[in-house]
Design a protein around this nucleic acid. Structure first.
Lengths: 260, 260
DNA sequence: TGTAGGTATGAATCCGACT
DNA sequence: AAGTCGGATTCATACCTAC
């Protein structure tokens, strides 16, 4: 029941439509240099009743014109989020090469569970990077605005030698960029610049995996940087969008090689 | 075995020298409008052998001229940190008025434990504020710099009505300010501007509690903002320093009232 | 082309109404 | 009564429209 597409015909970017829990075990162990992904947070609200609403009802104004499609898998409670995340993180770690990197998004509320899941999945947790959305985040009266999302970083084993990663440069530990609503296709889409920066430590030609591809921004970043990419997306609609966006991301001369 | 000093003689700023676990139960329940504190993080490295070293060894280069005194309480393992933090957070919550605020510092490694302790202590966790130390943090070759500390925010019950807090304004959700090592007295001292900003939601005349006063920056902020302050510090040396700094923080005309 | 002014938006949260 | 539901609200910013 899963579809597989080799976007450029040369294995540079391969995407799967289906559940990552089914697809991850079929991939080659030890082949992945980085997992860069933005899973459903299963968050929102102080109470369970705030979580059972659909993503759109939770996060968008009732009168918003630009309504995004809902996405599945965003209604787990805390225990099952932990169990589920630990499973796909463990599967991903089996695919990871030594010293491979993990970068996983979370909001403030799920951060403790997410770091538990990362470590439970066999990764070595190495830090948190805040993404500062600046004043484009919603304000809250009489309290501090929740204006950051967080990227949990980890490695498969030790950080490794320099040849395992791109140029031993020093990267900043935080990213500031507002949300640009008009450029978004997916309601939780991340800025392309941010994803490219996150892929920084992956060596040229390395393979980047995203088990929750969404509209494919990670794939666009990987292709533009000359890294290989494997993406998985459960929703057929977003799968098609990701396919198109990654195809359009390649420089013209490489696309031409497959032109008739 | 505890010392108590009423700094201005009018109850505006009262400090205790001793263990907060002994002193907190002696204070008046329901009297505190905010707990603003920076407890010992007990973080350390990835392994226990890193944790048994003292704070000075971990965080300072051996040839650093400015050697801070080691502060106590930084050698607990994770489970005992959680138990210990839950106890003083619970005691503090007993002292808190309805809708009182909690702001507690943590580093990235202790964040999950700290949020568990906050909730275990009876507070309602409401967010995380990153403090971006900018490029003053040490860079790391081939990886993302760890340049943020975090402030966990919480309330005692609901956010409450506007009269419980200062001006129903919207506050930012992040703070950027480099560390100025030359101005520091304590090795983990926080910028005064940051502490004053954190005290923003406390209404004028409200009481701010800091069970881990250190060199007393929270007290300086409270006094300068016209809030009342109770501080606790276990180390006699820092207790003296805090006493002096808070005394000097008051505007001249108020100090004169106690001059001979 | 440039500027000014109006409007839509945000990986929320609050709170009243209802079951 | 605890649980559930869904509309109202926050404001800096980006975007759109008018002149």
């Amino acid at each position: 029941m899963t579809e597989r597409v080799d976007i450029f015909g040369d294995g540079r970017a391969v995407i799967y439509q289906g559940d990552c829990l089914e697809i991850l075990p079929t991939l080659a162990p030890g082949s992945v240099n980085a997992v860069v992904t933005d899973p459903p947070y299963n968050s929102g609200g102080l109470f369970r009743s705030d979580r059972v609403r659909t993503t759109r009802d939770k996060y968008q104004h009732t009168d918003t014109a630009r309504l995004h499609a809902n996405f599945s898998g965003d209604n787990r409670d805390q225990r099952s989020f932990l169990a589920w995340a630990m499973v796909w993180l463990g599967m991903s770690q089996q695919l990871a090469a030594p010293a491979a990197m993990l970068a996983m998004f979370s909001d403030w509320r799920q951060l403790p569970l997410a770091t538990d899941a990362v470590q439970g999945g066999g990764w070595i947790w190495r830090g948190i990077i805040p993404w500062n959305k600046t004043e484009s985040a919603r304000p809250q009266r009489g309290w501090f605005r929740s204006q950051c999302e967080y990227i949990i970083t980890a490695t498969n084993g030790t950080l490794g030698k320099e040849q395992d990663r791109e140029a031993a440069m020093c990267l900043a530990g935080m990213w500031s960029e507002p949300i640009k609503a008009s450029e978004k296709v997916h309601s939780t889409e991340k800025p392309l610049d941010l994803m490219k920066w996150l892929c920084g430590p992956v060596r040229s030609g390395g393979l980047i995996l995203d088990p929750f591809m969404g509209s494919g921004t990670t794939g666009v970043a990987a292709v533009q940087l000359g890294r290989k990419f494997i993406g998985i997306e459960i929703d057929p609609g977003y799968f098609k969008i990701a396919h198109r966006r990654i195809l359009d991301a390649a420089p013209l001369f490489t696309q031409r090689t497959n032109d008739p």
